[in-house]
Simulated scan of single mutants.
Amino acid sequence: MEQNEPVFVISVAAQLANMHPQTLRQYDRMGLVVPQRRNGKHRRYSSVDVERLRRIQELSTVGVSLEGVRRMIELEREAAALRDQVMQLQRQVTLWRSQAQAMGPGGVRVFSAGSTGEVSIKKNGREARARQTRSWGMFELTR
């Protein structure tokens, strides 16, 4: 069973989260945990939803208000998304570095841009300057 697959009816999800079904309905209205709907009416909760319900209960037990819980969950989601993005960027950097190493020292180019828009290109230890032309935003090289 996939974690995001909506399989639990409200009574089962409430029992798994150790809550009353009415509490789950309230959280749904507040947008804290929004289950998927089957046939337009029946709420179905996934394992991820049940874990989120448990997290809400944990935070509420230590005195965090529901608005605080909502904000904390939102921040946790943002942090997880940012962690995923950092990991993806790290993989790209690793790939680019390995490609640059495979090209050898003669094949590596380094580009840098100045504050006025000039671009400096270093290849094989030699430097060339580029300036933006007015047509099509293209660059022409000058030495």
Rank of each mutant, 00 (worst) to 15 (best):
L16G: 00
Q15A: 12
R97T: 05
P105M: 02
R71G: 00
F139N: 06
S98E: 15
R38T: 10
S98Y: 02
E127N: 07
L59Y: 08
A13S: 08
R29L: 09
S11Q: 15
E118M: 10
S115Y: 05
T133M: 14
R71S: 08
Q90L: 07
A13P: 09
R43L: 03
L95C: 09
S11M: 10
Q3V: 13
E5Q: 14
I121T: 05
F8P: 00
Q22E: 15
D28N: 11
R126K: 15
N124M: 11
Q132D: 01
T23V: 09
E51S: 07
V12I: 12
D49E: 00
A128R: 15
M103F: 06
V50L: 03
A100T: 02
K123P: 02
L16V: 00
A130H: 07
W136G: 08
E118C: 08
P6F: 04
L53D: 03
G63Q: 03
E51M: 07
L82I: 08
S115Q: 11
R143V: 07
I56D: 01
R44K: 10
R71C: 05
E5R: 12
L24D: 01
E127W: 13
F111Y: 14
K122N: 07
E67V: 03
E78L: 14
G31V: 12
Y45T: 01
R126V: 14
D49V: 03
E51Y: 00
E78F: 02
V48F: 03
R38K: 12
M138Y: 10
R109F: 10
A128M: 12
V86W: 05
P6N: 04
G40C: 07
